[in-house]
């Protein structure tokens, strides 16, 4: 993975950083997974647990920041090592945001489940979350294996997430227009969908950071934007079914 330093404690410190990143990643993945499960299964208890778990990620980010600063001060790192350390700071910030977004989904569980919603409302959200979580998992797997050649997939999937989000947006708007009583839960679900879409974006950010750590180059900048919700307009009255 990386060349060995004369001071083995230095290697230990770098390894510790990446181990902490992986642990944070695992936590973030679990939080998002459980937040969605809490939403779909109407489980406020699980949602509370997710909200509490966010502390672990905040703690993790602070620890990585501290460690990274200490390493930079003590070892004067260069090249790959410096990228590795700066990358760790950036990835941990992204993961902490992922945790926040998961927590936000969990916070909305209580408002959404008040009136029991049809399962079809959640099916789309679940599929969106599956895409975002797959994205996150693949990115973190690349962080472990450092096989950047696989990173092309990530952008590919980001497009799928955006397309799915646009479709979900449209669907939720339709439900709101059908029946004003749907407006409260659907608005919350819209925010949940937006949060999940943002998780995909953070995963893409992490992928770019990993690419930078490993190759030293920035990832090529073509990023087609598939989120077309800014253009979604529904007719004021729905056609009669």
């Amino acid at each position: 993975m990386q060349s060995v330093h004369i001071v083995s404690a230095y290697d230990e410190e770098l390894k510790y950083l990446s181990k902490r990143i992986a642990a944070m990643g695992g936590h973030a993945e679990r939080m998002v997974e459980q937040a969605i499960a809490a939403l779909v299964n109407a489980d406020p208890g699980l949602a509370q647990k997710v909200i509490r778990d966010d502390l672990v990620l905040d703690e993790g980010q602070r620890e990585i920041d501290d460690k990274a600063i200490v390493i930079i001060a003590k070892r004067q790192p260069m090249a790959t090592d410096l990228r590795e350390i700066v990358g760790a700071i950036r990835i941990s910030a992204d993961l902490e945001r992922v945790g926040d977004l998961g927590k936000n989904v969990a916070k909305r569980v209580v408002s959404v489940i008040e009136g029991r919603q049809p399962t079809s409302l959640f099916r789309g959200l679940e599929a969106l979350a599956d895409l975002a979580l797959t994205q996150l998992k693949e990115v973190l797997d690349v962080y472990a294996s450092r096989s950047v050649e696989k990173i092309g997939f990530v952008r590919d999937r980001d497009d799928q997430i955006d397309a799915m989000y646009t479709s979900l947006f449209r669907e939720l708007l339709t439900y709101m227009m059908e029946d004003p009583r749907n407006i409260t839960p659907c608005t919350h679900l819209l925010f949940c969908a937006k949060n999940i879409e943002r998780i995909g974006d953070h995963a893409t950010n992490i992928a770019e950071t990993i690419y930078y750590i490993v190759t030293g180059d920035q990832m090529p900048a073509e990023r087609p934007k598939g989120d077309k919700t800014d253009k979604v307009v529904l007719p004021a009255t729905l056609p009669v079914k």
Binding site: K19, A22, G26, E29, L140, D141, A144
Partner: peptide, 19 residues
């Protein structure tokens, strides 16, 4: 998949219980 000698286990199995 994608596990090879030399890979760190704690990077691959990130779930809190595995850690």
């Amino acid at each position: 998949g994608g596990i090879a000698p030399g890979l760190s286990l704690s990077l691959k199995f990130r779930a809190p219980e595995m850690q």
